[in-house]
Design a protein around this nucleic acid. Structure first.
Lengths: 239, 239
DNA sequence: AAGTGGTCTAGACCACATC
DNA sequence: ATGTGGTCTAGACCACTTG
């Protein structure tokens, strides 16, 4: 099976960039060169290069080549579909403690019914967790999963990575999400679980997560203390 | 010249979705059908469909088809490379007044030199503008452009759309940007130009904008009153 | 079995940048 | 004139979904 050749090429090229084998400002080999190097067709090479471009590794310039973008200045994009576990991989050397405060099956109220496109007969997993980073509680995650898509869930799983469980154990294919960032007044729940140090407002990231079959299966509110919040995005000019 | 056939197809298909000709949950015609409809090859159709997918219009499902995503729930993504003018197109029926408070050429200080990758010999256009929306001053935009890429600029241009000027008059090709969102303490400048109503913090969107040739030419800080800030993003699972 | 999207190929012509 | 990326074609085989 000769599948996903373009993904293999994508990974190889990102490795070359990350390792510094090709430095920012320099160009990758031409598409024709790459077809020879990887023994493939040009369209397959272009598929891999387009991925590099979309993810901010290169800028393609007509007549010149694929210029490597300075990733230093880019820092680590926290965009895309990220779970907290993925974000925390970037928080190297920082100690993170996850605490589960609330876990169980509930009947959705009006708000949740609307957020999750649910019906009154649906059941919903509710999980409330706080994240202590370097000794300070700064993030409160409130997750809601539709039970019809997530039949089983335990408190133990919630103490680790829910996404790992959903993808590897339940084989759910998470496909896309809508993210909304706003600032709200702190709630009593925020004050109870977080070290707010007098902040009266909190950054709220609302996430609507969809499966491959376009069904909405999760709504999440990730509530961050103002001074610890940071969102980074790489964006290309849209058509 | 038969160029950009796939863009034409993309626009035609988005029109069909926006007009409600194809409704959320329904599928587009199959790729083979579309090749016939548009008298083209399948790869060209797929190029158009991939654009639709990236921009959150459809979800492609193997064996089934291209399902239209509910754009209602998606609202208007403010992601991508947007200037204020583009954002304000979505603020229909709302009155917007732009005021230029500061305009001129400056020598970059240490902070700007670092943000713009500039040298001490570079000159920088500095533009400070406030946005009054529905009678309230809620956004303060601080723009910095490297003069070597933007030779001319006037206060009058800044009262309208700088981006329109850059793209249509100067023919600058804006290509990609890095966006960073954080919350900071309000400055005296914020208090001077905005109606802060006692808010002590402010949402700051920092934008590093790059040209097609990968040179950084603009740094912008867009400072939004907490309660009026909203950021929406559509994200696909990254590889 | 038939239809769908996912991947891949080997060619072609074009517009752009460089020498 | 040469090399680069951008677009387009006509075909092929595969994996998946549905009848």
């Amino acid at each position: 099976m000769r599948q996903n050749k373009y993904l293999t090429i994508y990974k190889e090229l990102t490795d070359r960039i990350k390792s510094g084998e090709v430095k920012p400002g320099e160009v990758l080999p031409s598409e024709n060169d790459l077809t020879i190097q990887f023994d493939t067709s040009r369209e397959t090479i272009r598929k891999a290069l387009n991925l590099l471009s979309q993810n901010g590794f290169i800028q393609k310039i007509k007549g010149k080549g694929s210029v490597v973008i300075d990733v230093q200045k880019m820092s680590f994009p926290i965009s895309g579909l990220v779970s907290f576990k993925e974000v925390s991989k970037n928080l190297q050397m920082e100690s993170v403690i996850t605490r589960v405060h609330d876990f169980g099956l509930i009947k959705p109220d009006d708000f949740l019914t609307q957020q999750l496109d649910a019906t009154s007969s649906d059941e919903v997993w509710k999980v409330t967790r706080s994240r202590e980073i370097n000794g300070v509680n700064i993030i409160l995650d409130k997750d809601y999963f539709l039970k019809k898509y997530v039949p089983t869930l335990t408190k133990e799983i919630c103490e680790g990575s829910i996404y790992e469980f959903l993808e590897n154990q339940l084989n759910l294919n998470i496909s896309f999400a809508k993210k909304e960032i706003v600032v709200e007044d702190c709630t009593d729940e925020d004050r109870k679980h977080l070290d707010l140090e007098g902040f009266s407002h909190i950054v709220v990231v609302k996430n609507y997560v969809y499966l491959e079959n376009t069904s909405l299966f999760q709504y999440t509110e990730s509530r961050h203390r103002l001074d610890k919040f940071r969102f980074i995005d790489f964006a290309r000019r849209s058509v």
